Simulated scan of single mutants.
Amino acid sequence: MTNRLTKTLLALAVAFAMPAVSFAQDTCSNRGDLDEQYCDDNHDLTADTPTDPKKLKTPNTLVFTFTPVEDPAVYDKIFKPFTDYLSQCTAKKVVFFQVQSNAAEIEAMRSGRLHVGGFSPGPTNFAVNIAGAVPFAVIGDANGYQGYTLNVIVRKDSAIQTMEDLKGKKVAHTAPSSNSGHMAPVALFPALGVTPDKDYKVLFSGKHDQSILGVNSGDYDAAAVASDVFDRMVERGVISADNFRVIWSSEKFPTQDFAYAHDLEPNFRDKMLQCFYDYRFTDELKKAFAGADRFYPINYKKDFEMVRFVARSAGESFNRAAYDKQNAGKK
């Protein structure tokens, strides 16, 4: 009886002590929209590097990817000279991890299976808050970073001439988390005389290339797409620009950014970043990215403010609750 009573009292003591221990360990002074396992004590809106050395990673194999705006296999091939260079520069094996969706890319970094990769502007906010991604570069050249516009495209022979002509039409958006493919249209179109999901039903295509191909085939009357994706498809001969008209274009947004996992060991991380910044694109990469020749340094807090503004204007947030709601039923 005495032994059982002692064990019961010990178990209760541990149970009551656990919340206090957890509370004592949580010394984070600021998180913002970051998930609970991250901290932003320096208020730069990204996850801080862990202070516990045991939580830092120096991977033997560095896993890299690029946002799935088009067929992932295309970018696996295009980035092959770069991943070979990165392997030599970091003295690590580098593999290109093909992802099929923005959610899959975010989950890969959150779970530690992805160390560095290119993200689309809209999903970048989720990657930062949910996966601990830290954006560090975009495509650019010596004069600055490369941007893109939100374009509304129609077939050349379409009767649609103005934004108000979209009313009642089949208009493709890409995905709920996409900046140019959904959030920017929701935020910007009402001032142009047309409100998505009121004046026309939003049809999600899944990706920019699918929206573009859908307009080309007549499946959609119009589509909101990123100009850089459209231009790359023209460059590769997938579509002909002569088959389309652009009825409206936005101001410039930052294009796909590159982000690393917040828990990379600092010395290794800094060496890897320098490898990125020193690299100059092959002719094939230059062609794929409209003449850009390098990874141009950025600051997430400053350079992505317009993307976050569009999201807020569209009533979007990028916390865990919003992420889970958006991906409910997709698994």
Rank of each mutant, 00 (worst) to 15 (best):
A259D: 00
F244W: 13
A223D: 11
Y260K: 03
D278E: 07
C275A: 09
C275L: 07
V246S: 08
A241N: 07
P254R: 03
L285K: 02
R232A: 12
P254Y: 03
N216S: 14
D278L: 05
F268S: 01
R280S: 03
D283V: 06
S240W: 02
Q256I: 12
S211V: 03
E235N: 13
D242W: 09
L273K: 01
H262N: 14
K287E: 13
P254E: 02
G237S: 00
V225H: 09
V238P: 04
G237K: 00
D242S: 15
V238E: 12
K271M: 13
Q274T: 09
T282L: 11
D242C: 11
K271R: 14
C275F: 06
A224E: 07
R280I: 04
M272G: 00
L285F: 05
A223E: 12
N267V: 10
D228L: 15
D257M: 12
K271V: 12
F244K: 11
H208F: 08
D221S: 15
R280A: 03
E235R: 13
S211L: 07
K286D: 08
V229R: 08
S227M: 05
M272C: 00
H208M: 02
E284M: 06
Y279F: 14
D242V: 11
A222Q: 06
C275M: 08
D257W: 06
A288T: 10
D231S: 13
S250C: 04
R245L: 09
E251G: 13
R236H: 10
F253K: 05
Y220S: 07
D283Q: 13
C275S: 05
Q256T: 12
L273H: 02
I212L: 03
E235W: 08
K287L: 13
H262I: 06
F258V: 14
W248N: 11
K286F: 08
D231H: 10
Y279K: 11
R280P: 08
D221F: 14
L273Y: 01
Y220L: 08
D219L: 14
